[in-house]
Each structure stands twice: as structure tokens, then as C-alpha cells.
Design a protein around this nucleic acid. Structure first.
Lengths: 199, 199
DNA sequence: CGACATTGTTGTCAGCGCCTACATTGTTGC
DNA sequence: GCAACAATGTAGGCGCTGACAACAATGTCG
């Protein structure tokens, strides 16, 4: 007979929720269903997440943290050169976005809801990383000059869009590397062609 | 006293649904709520849409038709030159995507579900238009050479991503023109700079 | 005009999120 | 060591939803 108190219910809920999100998407995620899987009563989750949305917020936060980790790991593994780092970052982002499509969607839809300051804060490290990459690229003459926000947004949009295309089946997953390469060439293609591929 | 038969219930449902989608998003759209607004019983919609999903499919279909219309109108209004037409298309796509964000999301999420052949078919004209624009751009030397599918996907991804950024609040709507211009320059920036802006 | 398909209505079901009341367990101050 | 209290679980219920079945009104056509 299981003990009255689960003890790790919050963690168990987050894990089950992340799996459910990956397998069935946000719409299908049900607090009562999670409770059944874990073996607690239907109202138990309420002690840890006052409503469904707050569980989703928590998922979004941990999602941003993991995204940041994976981006930094990719940069670290790519060596010193700018273009390899850029390529690795783009690929890591899109890989995250396609492996955890529903989570990423949730991360962004959560981020701009009123009262989601925690989520916004959790998103910052990853954004800071990307922003830094733009600024450095411009400083080194690899990227087009101009407002880093504007350049960065378009780069970011391209990454996000490629992920969306793969997720919606418009692009086959095997195309990932090709699309990343095309995108990177587009980013660095505006500056003089010499040495673009060397760095 | 209203007549027993509404007479235009299907149309009325689609209109109310599109408005509800725009105002409150897909999640909030309720068949019973639509029925109440229109003034029929809660089960009446079932005669026209056997379940909720089939209504969403119908919305997605008309959405693709309207997207195609608006893209063609934009191209027609842009004159003969390639770059102006490209710019107009990109802007028209993003404008549609931001004016009807929830609808666009629905259009794409519907498109890749099993059994959505009607939606896929409805999407074709708009995609054909975009594809033709790529091929023509390459033929005229305005765009980078290479597999049109690959080039087109990245372009399309960029558009889609910009729309997502604006919709999620990551980019302010006032930036639209700037972002479109940055994106277009990125597309045509890979070929020799001469005459890029003249077309 | 009568058979039949179409398009409505009413009633019911299970599942959901959210809420309240209550039970059990862990913790802390006397 | 135990009483008070906070934390965390259970049980039950509310109103909402989508889906379904049985029935009623209406339009259509032989």
C-alpha cells in the first residue's frame, strides 16, 4: 500500500507532463490524467500547481533552461571559429525545436501572456547568447552591419521558421543540415565573399 | 419567433467561428458557444460539422483560399519588377499571418494531420505561387542558384518566423517593414550586388 | 399527397478544470 | 512528548465541453 503522501509529486507531475506534452501535445494534456498515471487523486496536483496554466508555465521555464544549456554546449563543442559556432547554434536550436516541438510552442505562447514574468526571465540566458552571437558577428565583419536587433530578429525568425516547417511536415527532417547550411550562407552571404567559409 | 430552420447555419457557423478564432484563439472556440450566439440548439452544428475538428478543417481551407487571394493581389499591385514583387509577397504573407495569427496556426497544424487531404489541396495554389516566385528569381539571377525547394523553404521559413516573432511579441509590429526589407535583402544579397535594388 | 432526406430540438453521457470540505502526515514550540 | 499548525493528500460536486441518441419539424420529389 503506497504511503499517503507521494513525496515527490511536483517532480513527478512535471516529468509526466513533459512526456505527455511530447507525445500528445498541449491540448491533450490533462491534470486528471496525469494524476491517474501517478496514482494520486484528481485534486492532488492542485497543491503544487493552482491551475493548469501554472503547470504549463513551469514546463516553459525548465524548457528555456534546457534550451540555453544545449545552445551553450553546441557553441562550446564547435571550436573557436565564428561560422562554425553560428552553424552549431542554428542547428542546436532547430534540433531542440523539432525534438520538443510542443514544448517550444508552449514556451513562446506562455512567454507573452500577462503575468508570465518568470517565463520571460527564464528565457533571457538563451536570448542573451543569441544576441551576443550577432554582435560578435558584426564586430568581426561576418554579418551585415545594422541594428543588431533587426539582424538578429531575422536570423532568429529563419531558425524558428525552419523548425516550424519541419514540425509541420513541410520540410523533411533529413533536409535539416541542408537548410541550416542554406540559412547560414544567407546570413553571412551579404558580406564580401572572401573568407566567409574559413572562419 | 424565428423559423424552425435557420437556413444558413453552416455559413453562420463559419463566420462566427472565424471571429471567435480571431478574438479568442482556437482553444477558446466552443461549438456550444457558437450555437448560443447564433441562436440554435447546442447540437445543431453537428448536422454541418460532425465534430469540432471538421469545423476547424473548414476554417483552414477557406483560410488558404483567402491567403492565396491576398498574395496574388499583392503581386498584381506591385508592378513588373522582380524585387518589388518579392517584397510585396513577403509583406502580404506576413500581414496575413499577423492579422489572422490563430487562423494561420490552425491552417498549418490542420494541414499535417492524417486525413486532411482537403486542407492540403486548398493550400496548393498559394504554395504554387510562392514556388513560382523562387524559380523565376533564380532564372532571372536574382536569387541564389540551387535546389528551388531548399531555397524556397528557407525563404518561407524566414517569412513564417518573422510572423511568429511579431505574433509572440518578440518583435514590435512597427518593425514589419524593416524586417521585410532585411529579409528581402538577405534573399537577394547572395548574388552580385549590381542591380539588386533596381528590379 | 405521402415517403423520405434534411435539419433542427431535447436529453444524456463522460471528461475536464476548478472549488470546497475533510483527512492524514510532517514540523515546530512549549 | 505532545499540542498546534502547515503542508499535502482525498472525496465530492459544480458548470462547462464534445459527442451521441431519439425525436420533431421542414423541404423535396415521385
Amino acid at each position: 500500500m503506497p504511503p499517503y503522501h507521494h513525496g515527490q509529486l511536483r517532480t513527478a507531475l512535471l516529468e509526466a507532463a513533459e512526456r505527455s506534452l511530447r507525445e500528445n501535445g498541449e491540448e491533450q494534456l490533462s491534470l486528471r490524467e496525469l494524476a491517474r498515471e501517478i496514482g494520486v487523486s484528481h485534486a492532488a496536483p492542485r497543491r503544487h500547481f493552482p491551475d493548469r496554466q501554472s503547470l504549463l508555465y513551469a514546463l516553459a521555464e525548465t524548457g528555456f533552461a534546457r534550451l540555453d544549456e544545449q545552445l551553450r554546449a553546441a557553441v562550446a563543442a564547435a571550436g573557436e571559429g565564428y561560422v562554425p559556432q553560428l552553424r552549431a547554434t542554428v542547428k542546436a536550436y532547430i534540433t531542440f525545436a523539432t525534438d520538443d516541438a510542443a514544448l517550444l510552442e508552449l514556451m513562446f505562447s506562455s512567454k507573452h501572456r500577462p503575468g508570465a514574468e518568470q517565463v520571460v526571465a527564464a528565457a533571457e540566458p538563451a536570448f542573451t547568447l543569441l544576441y551576443g552571437l550577432i554582435v560578435r558577428g558584426q564586430a568581426e565583419g561576418r554579418l551585415a552591419a545594422g541594428d543588431p536587433e533587426r539582424i538578429g530578429l531575422v536570423m532568429f525568425a529563419t531558425m524558428q521558421g525552419i523548425a516550424t516547417l519541419i514540425n509541420t511536415g513541410l520540410a523533411r527532417p533529413e533536409l535539416l543540415d541542408d537548410l541550416v547550411e542554406t540559412a547560414v550562407e544567407q546570413f553571412v552571404g551579404n558580406v564580401k565573399a572572401s573568407s566567409v567559409r574559413s572562419g
